[in-house]
Amino acid sequence: MNAARFTVRAAVALVGLLGVSDPFRVASIFSRAAHAAYAGWLLSRVKAAVVDRSVDGHGVFGSAKARFLLNRVGDVAILAVVVGAVLDAVGIPLQSALTLGGFGGIALGLASREAAENLVGGLLLGVTAPFAPGEAIIARKGGSGPPAVEGIVQRVGLINSSVVGFDAVPTTVPNSVFSAAAVTNLSRLKHRRFRQTIGLRYVDVDRVPGVVQGIRSLLAAAPGVDPAKGITVHWVRYAASSLDIEATAFFALGRLEFLDTVQGLLLRISELVRAAGADFAFPTTTIEVAPGAGGVPSILQADGEAANS
């Protein structure tokens, strides 16, 4: 009904403004306007049905905000179709109207580009919902490099959002920042990865198999570990001063529980290594020198003579 009233009023106003007096043309205009109104009503019903079927009541697409946004976007599209039909009915070329609207849009866009980017970013956040208030996030521009934003989300607005950093400093962030960034939602992590490199001394090469098996057993028995994600413990390389063992496992735990579990595992791995008769490697350098005069390397002998002179 609203679309029909709008269409009829628009047709009457345009007929009056254009001074159309030919009764046949007036009848033609109102006939086409009536068809446009009916088409608008029909499209409105179709839009409502599509939105109701698309929004299933689960997740962000089931939220009241998402339903509101989808309905408003549909209303704007239907209004554009009806206006175009009415303009065509009264003899105003649609291309001319679009050209005029295009110039107006360009001027508006140049004048408020930043505000428009923030508004579009806010609409995208409302529909996609990559985060919600109370969740911890890290946003990196381009997906790499230092974080552009990190902290706890306090508010998600249409133009900007509020985030309290991990250092407890509150920040208001333009929504366009999130549109150009890769956002990691720490609060929605289902698994956290334990990954450590254990470096043993070269003299402990015979003890490596026992240490590897012991670490596997520790990880398999750890609380919260997810065996379906895989537990891998292997000797992976000869490093400059150590024999490197890499251990990886995934835990279905919260952040604080995971940190406690990691601490306990590191302590038990340390005990296991020493119980096996091995020890951790430290960065060392081995230098082989040819004996100099009197069995002392020549370079050391020269240094000693310089020190005694």
Score class of each variant (00 low, 15 high):
residue 221 A to Q: 15
residue 12 V to N: 11
residue 78 I to D: 02
residue 200 L to E: 06
residue 280 F to H: 09
residue 236 V to M: 00
residue 308 N to T: 15
residue 150 E to W: 09
residue 162 S to C: 06
residue 77 A to F: 13
residue 198 I to T: 03
residue 244 D to N: 09
residue 91 G to S: 09
residue 7 T to V: 13
residue 215 I to L: 00
residue 289 V to H: 12
residue 214 G to S: 05
residue 274 R to P: 03
residue 1 M to S: 12
residue 86 V to R: 05
residue 116 A to H: 07
residue 14 L to T: 04
residue 175 N to L: 04
residue 184 T to Y: 11
residue 295 G to I: 06
residue 280 F to E: 05
residue 149 V to D: 10
residue 216 R to V: 00
residue 300 L to Y: 15
residue 74 G to F: 02
residue 148 A to H: 05
residue 241 S to D: 11
residue 84 G to R: 02
residue 289 V to S: 13
residue 185 N to M: 11
residue 104 G to A: 14
residue 197 T to V: 10
residue 58 H to S: 14
residue 2 N to S: 12
residue 306 A to R: 15
residue 171 T to W: 10
residue 127 V to E: 12
residue 24 F to M: 10
residue 93 P to N: 12
residue 265 L to D: 03
residue 37 A to D: 01
residue 300 L to R: 11
residue 167 D to C: 04
residue 91 G to Q: 09
residue 283 P to E: 12
residue 287 I to E: 15
residue 58 H to Y: 11
residue 291 P to F: 13
residue 164 V to E: 11
residue 195 R to V: 13
residue 171 T to D: 09
residue 166 F to A: 05
residue 49 A to E: 13
residue 196 Q to L: 14
residue 2 N to A: 15
residue 6 F to E: 10
residue 200 L to F: 01
residue 22 D to A: 14
residue 274 R to G: 07
residue 153 V to Q: 01
residue 149 V to K: 09
residue 216 R to F: 01
residue 149 V to N: 07
residue 122 G to H: 02
residue 126 G to S: 14
residue 199 G to T: 01
residue 16 G to F: 11
residue 7 T to C: 12
residue 260 D to M: 05
residue 216 R to D: 00
residue 18 L to G: 11
residue 72 R to C: 04
residue 145 G to S: 01
residue 308 N to P: 05
residue 19 G to M: 12
residue 305 E to G: 04
residue 150 E to I: 03
residue 150 E to N: 13
residue 4 A to F: 11
residue 212 V to I: 04
residue 232 T to W: 00
residue 154 Q to P: 00
residue 107 A to F: 14
residue 176 S to C: 02
residue 277 G to Q: 11
residue 244 D to Q: 03
residue 143 G to W: 06
residue 12 V to L: 14
residue 67 R to V: 07
residue 99 T to D: 13
residue 269 I to Q: 00
residue 74 G to S: 07
residue 152 I to G: 01
residue 17 L to W: 12
residue 157 G to V: 00
residue 178 F to E: 02
residue 250 F to R: 04
residue 262 V to A: 12
residue 299 I to T: 15
residue 247 A to E: 02
residue 61 F to T: 11
residue 306 A to S: 15
residue 194 F to R: 03
residue 285 T to F: 15
residue 228 A to Q: 13
residue 34 A to L: 14
residue 272 L to H: 01
residue 261 T to D: 03
residue 248 T to M: 02
residue 67 R to T: 08
residue 56 D to C: 04
residue 273 V to A: 02
residue 305 E to N: 10
residue 96 S to D: 15
residue 134 G to I: 09
residue 252 A to E: 11
residue 61 F to E: 15
residue 89 A to W: 05
residue 103 F to M: 12
residue 119 L to G: 09
residue 139 A to R: 04
